[in-house]
């Protein structure tokens, strides 16, 4: 990672487009993060799954009939500016 940058781990939903067959359960369970396009295929938000939705996200992953949905860990670099802001607030 870049010098002076910190990273945080967060979870993100991901669709395997080859496996997905547009059952749409994910959008039903988790409309906050998944919408469907006009052909019924999921458009998954690229923002991190917020803690409040984690349980639902896990269910959506487990209930996908095609096992096309997954929760992946991603590392995000946090800009030093934000880190300073957080520490100054303490």
């Amino acid at each position: 990672m870049d010098h002076g940058h910190e990273t945080v781990s967060e979870l993100q939903l991901r669709v395997d487009p080859v496996a997905c067959d547009a059952f749409g359960y994910c959008a039903e369970l988790l409309p906050e993060l998944v919408t469907l396009d006009e052909w019924g295929y999921p458009i998954v938000s690229d923002r991190a799954v917020p803690p409040a939705l984690l349980e639902l996200a896990r269910r959506a992953v487990a209930e996908c009939p095609r096992r096309a949905l997954s929760l992946e860990v991603r590392q995000r670099a946090v800009k030093p500016k934000r880190v300073r802001l957080a520490s100054s607030r303490r």
Binding site: P17, V18, C20, D21, A22, D37, E38, W39, G40, Y41
Partner: peptide, 12 residues
Amino acid sequence: GQCGPCMFGLPA
């Protein structure tokens, strides 16, 4: 014809 957005989206 593997991925929905391509299989349905491009003909549309």
